[in-house]
Design a binder for these strands. Structure first.
Lengths: 346, 346
DNA sequence: GACTGTCGCGCAAGCATTTTCGTTGAGATA
DNA sequence: TATCTCAACGAAAATGCTTGCGCGACAGTC
C-alpha cells in the first residue's frame, strides 16, 4: 500500500501529529524535527492522501467544471482560462464533459459533488433548472456559464446572445442584404437568444420576418455541421437568401461549403456571419465574419466569481455578468467597403 | 453540513451499516427496510461521500487524464473518446491541462494521485521520463499517449510519427515537389519523429537534405502559429520551396496564410501538407492535406489499456500500441491528378 | 523561588464510510 | 423440545488525516 504519515512517524519515533503539522507548514515544530520529517517524506516518496484530508477538513480545494463538449473551441478557450485562474488561487480543476446529454450532466454533477468538490462551474445542456434549484437549496456554490435558464436566479457569466444575434443581423443589413436567413442552433437560451436578436434586428429595420428563411432548431446529436448543411440545402432549394446568420462558426463553415459547392460566390451572392469567432476563422475559404464571445474572459470571470463564493459562504446574493459580444468583420460578409476591418488571427 | 448515512440511520432507528448496505445494493437487507432507507435518502437528498468511501476501499473509480492543451482539437478528440469509453466501465474521468508546462504537469500528477485516482493517462510535455519511472516504481497504473520517451519502457498508445513524416514527405515528392521544406514542432518525440521521417523520405528518394529548408524546433509558448509564420517568412526570404510539410495543421494554416499573402498560389507554387487532420481542414482557403492520426482511436485504445491494467494489477508487462497514420489528400498538395482523393469533412 | 511565557510536541476524538464477524429471532427439521 | 438454518441486522475496527487541548521543559521576570 501507499506510504502514510504513520510510516514516517514510526521511522522517526515521532507522532503522526508532528508529521501532519510539518506537511502543512504548521508553526509549532522545531527546525530539527521538521527537517528530519521532510527528509524522510522525500525518501519514502510520501504523497499526502488528499481524500483523507478533505474528509476531515470538509473541503477539497478542488472545483469541478462541466461542459457539453470539448470539441468546440469555444469551451476549450473557456476551460484554459478558467483553469489557470483557479490554479493561481490554489484550486485544482476537474473537467468533465456531458457530451450534450442532460443525463450525463446530472451524473457528472453527482460524481463531482460525491467527491466533495468545493464548487462547480457548469455550462449546462439541461432543459430545466430543477437540478440547480436543488443545488441552491443545498447551499452548494456554483456558477453557470454560457447558457442559463430564463427566470431562474443564479450566478451566471455569459454573453448577451440576443445582442449577438441582433448585431450580426444588423451587420448583414448594413452590408446591403435584404433576404436574410438564419440557421438556428439548439433550443436553449443561446440558440433562442440569437434567434430573437435576429428577429428584433429585422423588425427594427422594417424587414418582414419570413419563417421560410429560418431553419428548425437543431437536435443535440453532435452533428451540427451536418444539420447545417441540410438547412443550407433547403434554403438554396427555394429562392435563395442573400445573407445568412448562423448560430455558430462550425455551422457557418458547413453552410458555406454547401454554397461554394453550388457554384455561388461569397459574399457577392450570399454573405455569411457566424458566432463564436473561433480560431482559423480567418484562414477559411471564405474568411468568416463572426461575433466574438470573449471566451477566455468568460473563463476568468466565472473562476473569479466562484472564488468569491468560496471565500464568502454566507452571502446568498446571486450575481450575473453579461458580456457584450463584439463584431469581427472578415470577407465572408464584406459586400461594401467597411471602416473597421479586423486583422486576421484570433 | 451535508447529510450523512448517520442522519438517515438515526431518522429511521436503524444502524449505519444497514444504510451502507442498502446504498450499495447489498443482498443482506430486507425489502421493507431497504425501501424505508431509500425513501429517507431521497427525502434528505443524501449524497454518498465518495472520498470517505475511497478512503476505506482503497479505490476511487476515477482516472485522471493530463493533456498539454485543450485548445488543440487533436486532444479534444482523444479526450471525448477516452471519456466515453471509461464511463462505460463505470470510471469517472478527471481531465487536467498542463498548459505545455512540465512543472504544471508534475503538479497535476501529484494532485490527481493525491486524490487517489486509480490510474492515469498522460500526454506528457515533460522532457524526461524521471517522473514516470517513479510512478512505475510505485506501481501506479498509467499509460502514456501521443508522446513517449525513447528507451523508456512503458504502456503507450500513439501513432508512428516517423511514418507520418515519411508518408507526408513522400506524398509531396509524388506530387512533383523537388525543394521540400519542413516547419518543425516541439523537440519532443512527435516533433523529432516527424522530422526524421521527413529526412528519411528525402534520402530514400535521392533528394539531398538541405538544412536551410528546415525551421528550428518550436519553443513551447503556445504561439505555434506565430512561430510558424516567422518560419515561413524566412523560407520565402531565400529561394522558396515548392513544397512544405508542417508539424501540424494549425502551423500549416499559419504558414499558408503567409504564402497566400505573398501572392503565391497553393498548390501550384507551393504545395502544403500538415499533420493531425483537424476538422475544418476541408473548409480552408487551401483545403489542407494532412496525416490523420486517428485521434479518437487513440482515446479508445488508451482507455482500454488502462482498464486492463486496473483489472489485472499483477501483470507488469508493458504494452505498446503504435497506430499507422493515414494520408488525407486535399487541394493544398494536389499538383497532379491523384487516384485516392478523399471526401471533405472529417 | 514563585510566576509567567513560550516552544515543541503528543493524546484523543472525530471525519463518513466499509468490512468482518457476530447476534438475534423465527421458522423448519428431527 | 432441542437443534439447525437462514434471513436480517448491528458492533467494532479500520481507513489516513486534522484539530483542540494539554503537558512538560526551559528561559525570563520580579
Amino acid at each position: 500500500m501507499a506510504v502514510t504519515m504513520r510510516d514516517i512517524a514510526q521511522a522517526l519515533g515521532v507522532s503522526v501529529v508532528t508529521v501532519s503539522k510539518v506537511m502543512r507548514d504548521h508553526a509549532d515544530i522545531g527546525t530539527h524535527t521538521r527537517n528530519r520529517v521532510l527528509a524522510k517524506a522525500k525518501e519514502l516518496n510520501y504523497r499526502p492522501n488528499l481524500t483523507a484530508r478533505s474528509l476531515v477538513t470538509g473541503e477539497s480545494r478542488q472545483v469541478g467544471v462541466i461542459v457539453p463538449t470539448l470539441l468546440h473551441p469555444f469551451f476549450a478557450d473557456v476551460l484554459e482560462a478558467l483553469s489557470s485562474t483557479m490554479k493561481k488561487s490554489g484550486y485544482a480543476v476537474m473537467i468533465s464533459s456531458s457530451m450534450e446529454d442532460p443525463v450525463i450532466e446530472e451524473a457528472a454533477i453527482e460524481q463531482l459533488l460525491g467527491h466533495r468538490m468545493d464548487g462547480l462551474i457548469i455550462a449546462s445542456c439541461s432543459t430545466s433548472p430543477a437540478k440547480f434549484q436543488q443545488l441552491n437549496e443545498q447551499d452548494i456554490p456554483f456558477v453557470l456559464i454560457d447558457r442559463f435558464f430564463p427566470g431562474f436566479r443564479t450566478n451566471y457569466v455569459g454573453v448577451d446572445d440576443r445582442v449577438a444575434g441582433k448585431m450580426a443581423t444588423e451587420h448583414l443589413i448594413a452590408m446591403g442584404c435584404k433576404r436574410i436567413a438564419h440557421i438556428r442552433g439548439l433550443e436553449f437560451t443561446t440558440g433562442v437568444g440569437r434567434f430573437e436578436g435576429y428577429k428584433q434586428a429585422l423588425k427594427q429595420h422594417g424587414i418582414r420576418f419570413n419563417p421560410d428563411l429560418v431553419s428548425p432548431y437543431m437536435t443535440a446529436d453532435g452533428l451540427d455541421w451536418q444539420q447545417s448543411s441540410i438547412a443550407m440545402d433547403n434554403l438554396l432549394a427555394g429562392k435563395p437568401p442573400d445573407g445568412v446568420f448562423c448560430y455558430n462558426d462550425p455551422m457557418a463553415i458547413a453552410a458555406i461549403d454547401v454554397v461554394l459547392q453550388a457554384g455561388l460566390h461569397i459574399p457577392r451572392d450570399i454573405a455569411f456571419i457566424g458566432c463564436d469567432n473561433l480560431h482559423y476563422g480567418a484562414s477559411l475559404k471564405a474568411p468568416l465574419s463572426s461575433m466574438d464571445h470573449h471566451s477566455s474572459e468568460i473563463g476568468v470571470r466565472a473562476a473569479k466569481m466562484l472564488l468569491r463564493l468560496l471565500k464568502d459562504k454566507t452571502s446568498t446574493a446571486k450575481r450575473r455578468v453579461v458580456l457584450k459580444p463584439s463584431l469581427v468583420i472578415r470577407e465572408s460578409s464584406q459586400r461594401r467597403a467597411s471602416k473597421n476591418k479586423q486583422p486576421s488571427h484570433n
